[in-house]
C-alpha cells in the first residue's frame, strides 16, 4: 500500500545481500523481535494491507472478526 514513503526507513529493512544481513546480526535481531512480539492471549496488531492483485486495502480485523485468521509470512526467495 506504500504507507511508508519510498526509501523512508525501508532501506535497511530491504537488505540487498543475505550474507551482509547475517554478518550484521540481522537474523539474531529478527529472532529476538519475534519473541518480543505479542504473546498468545494478547491482542494482535491490526493493520490495513494492499490486497493482490487489486482488491484495495484489506484490514486484518475484518478478517478475524468472525473466524480465526491464519497468516503465513513469506516471500518469493
Amino acid at each position: 500500500m506504500g504507507r511508508a514513503r519510498e526509501g523512508d526507513g525501508a532501506t535497511a529493512y530491504n537488505y540487498p545481500r543475505f550474507d551482509d544481513y547475517v554478518a550484521d546480526g540481522g537474523d539474531l535481531a529478527d529472532e529476538a523481535a519475534f519473541w518480543a512480539s505479542p504473546r498468545p492471549g494478547q491482542r494482535a496488531p491490526d493493520f490495513a494491507l494492499h490486497g493482490l492483485p487489486d482488491s484495495g486495502q484489506v484490514r486484518l480485523s475484518d478478517l478475524w472478526r468472525s473466524q480465526p485468521l491464519v497468516m503465513e509470512f513469506g516471500s518469493f526467495t
Binding site: 535481531a29 529478527d30 529472532e31 523481535a33 519475534f34 519473541w35 518480543a36 512480539s37 505479542p38 494482535a44 496488531p45 493493520f47 486484518l60 478475524w64 480465526p68 485468521l69 491464519v70 497468516m71 503465513e72 509470512f73 513469506g74 516471500s75
Partner: peptide
Amino acid sequence: AYGMMPNMTWVI
C-alpha cells in the same frame, strides 16, 4: 509488528 521471521505463521 509480528516479529520479522522470514517464514512464520500466526493464528489470530
